[in-house]
């Protein structure tokens, strides 16, 4: 799809599966919060656009974001908290990585967490 994706509104779906074209003032009363949540595929399409334009790190971020779309808000907040310095042990971080991979198929994010665990261990940034 060509940027901006808004040009292809008919092909864009919310995380709920509802088509972007069906999200209007007229349908407002029937919409749910999931109807305004971005779909993982849309993030992957934007990652592809970023990658082609030379923004490879931004593209990688959007790919991780695509993985995280299905992770509930409260879990996201907890995961972030665990990654902050001196919050988690090496084992807990490795468990988190495994959990991300098995529960949400979040391979790239899991890789980031594993990498963090290694560096935190070297740099003494793990829970004491």
């Amino acid at each position: 799809m060509k940027y901006p994706l808004m040009q292809h509104a008919e092909e864009i779906r919310a995380a709920s599966g509802r088509s972007l074209n069906e999200i209007t003032l007229e349908t407002l009363a029937s919409l749910s919060p999931e109807d305004l949540q971005i779909h993982a595929n849309t993030l992957r399409a934007q990652a592809e656009i970023a990658h082609r334009a030379g923004y490879s790190q931004l593209a990688a971020n959007l790919m991780r974001a695509a993985e995280l779309t299905i992770v509930p808000n409260e879990e996201i907040l907890k995961m972030y908290e665990m990654l902050r310095p001196e919050r988690a042990s090496f084992e807990k971080l490795m468990e988190l990585a495994a959990y991300l991979e098995t529960t949400y198929h979040a391979v790239e994010t899991a890789q980031l967490v594993r990498e963090a665990a290694q560096v935190y261990r070297e740099r003494e940034l793990l829970r004491r």
């Binding site: 949540q37 971005i38 993030l43 991780r64 972030y80 980031l112 963090a116 560096v119 935190y120 940034l125």
Partner: peptide, 21 residues
């Protein structure tokens, strides 16, 4: 670290924001 983050926690946060558009 005094800012209570690491590059990895910030990277995760960036992805978390993007995952919510």
């Amino acid at each position: 670290v005094d800012g209570d983050d690491t590059p990895w926690s910030k990277a995760f946060l960036a992805s978390a924001y993007a995952s919510r558009g």
